[in-house]
Simulated assay, not measured.
Amino acid sequence: MREEEAIDAVKLAAIGAGLPAHDASVVRVGENGVVLLPSAGVLARVVPRAAKGSDPRREIDIAAWFASRQVPVVHPARPEPLIVGQYVVSLWEYLADSRPADLVTLAKCLRRLHAVAIPEKSLPILSPFDRFEERYGRAPASMLATALFCANSAIISRAGGPLRNSRSARQCCTATRIWRISW
């Protein structure tokens, strides 16, 4: 996704939702886009309609479900995603004064999260290695060693091998998530 595509999709979605979009700015663009609408207090997530493994409607439902159980989450600014051409745009409250949580706060949030009963509609299984092979080819040179390790871990994990539940696999998942977020 290009920056212009993300901005255009979000501006059209904002107009459809009655939100100001004159000051839209790209936060991040990769497979998906994230665009800030400061005047509206909204952060928009842009996903191609054909994207595998991404379901903005489900993300909104899960956020609402967690909020109903007093788990701290970012709230959707709109209860439904908006379809704009080949993109789906979800709008979320923007937490302008947010900052990374300290370990104690994070631990309390995780404890609250893990105390919540599993929903009737079970959550999708997280597969951090989905489409990994196509992604690691786009890795910055500084991350190629990690990408190659993770690619090998993905192959072993899919085969039910020893890294499936190991610390190395979890570290790789974290590295993959950080890498994916940085795109």
Rank of each mutant, 00 (worst) to 15 (best):
V74L: 04
V74N: 00
H75S: 09
P76N: 02
A77S: 13
R78F: 09
P79F: 05
E80Q: 09
P81C: 12
L82M: 13
L82G: 03
I83E: 14
V84C: 07
V84E: 14
Y87K: 06
V88G: 01
S90L: 01
L91P: 00
W92E: 02
E93D: 09
Y94E: 00
Y94Q: 02
Y94P: 00
Y94K: 00
L95F: 05
A96Y: 02
P100Q: 05
A101Q: 04
D102A: 01
L103P: 08
L103Y: 13
L103E: 12
L103T: 14
V104N: 06
T105A: 09
L106R: 15
A107I: 01
K108Y: 09
K108W: 11
K108S: 14
K108H: 14
K108Q: 15
C109S: 12
R112H: 08
L113G: 03
L113S: 09
H114S: 05
H114D: 06
A115V: 03
V116Q: 05
A117D: 13
A117I: 04
I118K: 15
I118G: 14
I118P: 15
L123F: 06
L123D: 06
L123T: 14
L123A: 08
P124G: 10
P124I: 13
S127T: 15
S127L: 15
P128H: 10
D130N: 13
D130W: 12
D130S: 11
F132C: 02
E133M: 10
E134M: 09
E134D: 04
E134T: 10
E134P: 00
R135G: 05
R138P: 03
A139W: 01
A139R: 07
P140C: 05
P140R: 12
A141Q: 14
A141S: 13
S142T: 08
A145Q: 10
A145G: 03
T146Y: 13
A147M: 11
F149P: 00
F149D: 08
C150F: 00
C150W: 02
C150Q: 02
A151L: 13
A151T: 08
A154G: 10
I155M: 11
I155P: 00
S157F: 03
S157R: 06
R158Y: 09
G160I: 11
P162S: 07
